[in-house]
Write a protein that binds this DNA or RNA. Structure first.
Length: 271
DNA sequence: ATGGGCACCTGGCTGC
DNA sequence: TGCAGCCAGGTGCCCA
C-alpha cells in the first residue's frame, strides 16, 4: 500500500475536486473490502455536501455535515477523480458521483482497503482512537521517541512501524529512515542512544516530507488522484535494492525478513 | 502490557 | 505454454 506520503498525496489530489461539491449518487459494486461496506453507505452520503478532506495516519477522512467517511487504501488501493462518464474497470469497487460531473472512484485489487461511515467525532472511532502522534507533528519529537523506546525489546524497525508509537511509517520508509539515521534495523529499541533517537526522529520526518514533495513512491500500482505515479522511488537508498551497491559506501545492500516483511539495510553504514 | 504470528486478497514474476 | 510457488506500500486480532 500506499504509506503516509502516498496517502497524503492522494488527499491533496482529491480535496479540490471534493470540497464544496454535493454528492448526487454513490455506487458500490463490491462490498467485500477488508470489512464489508455497510448497507447504509450509499444513502448516508447521497445529497450531502463535502466540507473537509483530512488525513489521520493512513486514513483519509471525508467530512460531511451529517458524518464522516473514513477510508483506508490497504496495500493496493487508490482513489482517483475522473469524469463520471468514464466506465469503471475491474476492481473499481465504489464511486461517489459529484454535482460537478466528476466521480471519486476507489480501485483496490487486493481489497485490503476499507470504508466506514461514522457520525460524531471520527477521531473517537475505534480505528482512530488509539493512534500515536503524527510523525510530522511537533508532538513527535526526539524526546518522545527516546522515552518510548525505553524498556522495549522489539527491533527498532518493528518499533517505528507500530502505530501505537508513531503512525504512517510503513515498510519502505522504515528501512529508509533507519538507513538515514545509521541504525541497524535489528537493534533492540531500548538499546538506541539518545543521539540515535534524535537522528531517527529527524530521519523519519525528513524522509516522509521529502517523499510527499515529489508525490510519494510508486513501486507497482500506486497512482495519485490524477492517475500518475510518485517519483520517490528514485530517491530510495535501500528499499528493494538488495545486492546493489550502497549509494554511500558501495558495499552490497542486504535484505532479510522481520515480522514477515522484508527489511533492507547496509551493514556498513548502519550499526 | 508485550511480542509474535496469522489472516484477509489478487496479480505479477520466476523457475521448472 | 502451463502452472506451482513466492512475493508485494497494511493492520486488526488472537494467542502465549
Amino acid at each position: 500500500m500506499p504509506e503516509l506520503p502516498e496517502v497524503e498525496t492522494t488527499r491533496r489530489g482529491i480535496a479540490p475536486a471534493l470540497i464544496g461539491r454535493r454528492v448526487v449518487h454513490a455506487i458500490v459494486r463490491e462490498r467485500r473490502l477488508r470489512w464489508p461496506i455497510d448497507r447504509h453507505f450509499e444513502a448516508a452520503i447521497e445529497h450531502q455536501w463535502v466540507r473537509r478532506v483530512e488525513r489521520r495516519a493512513k486514513y483519509i477522512l471525508i467530512g460531511f455535515d451529517a458524518g464522516t467517511l473514513i477510508l483506508h487504501l490497504g496495500m493496493s488501493g487508490s482513489l482517483r477523480v475522473l469524469d463520471a462518464a468514464v466506465p469503471p474497470k475491474l476492481h473499481d469497487h465504489w464511486d461517489i458521483v459529484l454535482d460537478s460531473g466528476k466521480v471519486l472512484r476507489f480501485h483496490d485489487p487486493r481489497r485490503f482497503g476499507s470504508a466506514h461511515w461514522v457520525e460524531g467525532n471520527p477521531l473517537e472511532h475505534k480505528l482512530l482512537a488509539k493512534l500515536a502522534p503524527e510523525p510530522l507533528s511537533d508532538a513527535f519529537d526526539a524526546d518522545y521517541l527516546y522515552r518510548a523506546t525505553r524498556k522495549r525489546a522489539v527491533a527498532i524497525k518493528l518499533f517505528i512501524m507500530n502505530s501505537q508509537v508513531v503512525v504512517g511509517v510503513g515498510n519502505i520508509y522504515a528501512s529508509e529512515a533507519l538507513f538515514r539515521a545509521g541504525i541497524s534495523p535489528r537493534r533492540a529499541a531500548r538499546r538506541i542512544t539518545r543521539a540515535q533517537g534524535q537522528a531517527l526522529t529527524q530521519a523519519i520526518k525528513d524522509v516522509l516530507a521529502e517523499a510527499i514533495e515529489i508525490g510519494g513512491t510508486t513501486l507497482r500500482d500506486y497512482v495519485n488522484a490524477d492517475g500518475l505515479p510518485g517519483y520517490f522511488r528514485q530517491k530510495l537508498f535501500v528499499y528493494e535494492r538488495d545486492g546493489q551497491a550502497c549509494r554511500v559506501c558501495k558495499s552490497p545492500v542486504k535484505q532479510f525478513v522481520q515480522g514477515q516483511r522484508s527489511t533492507y539495510w547496509c551493514s556498513v553504514c548502519q550499526r
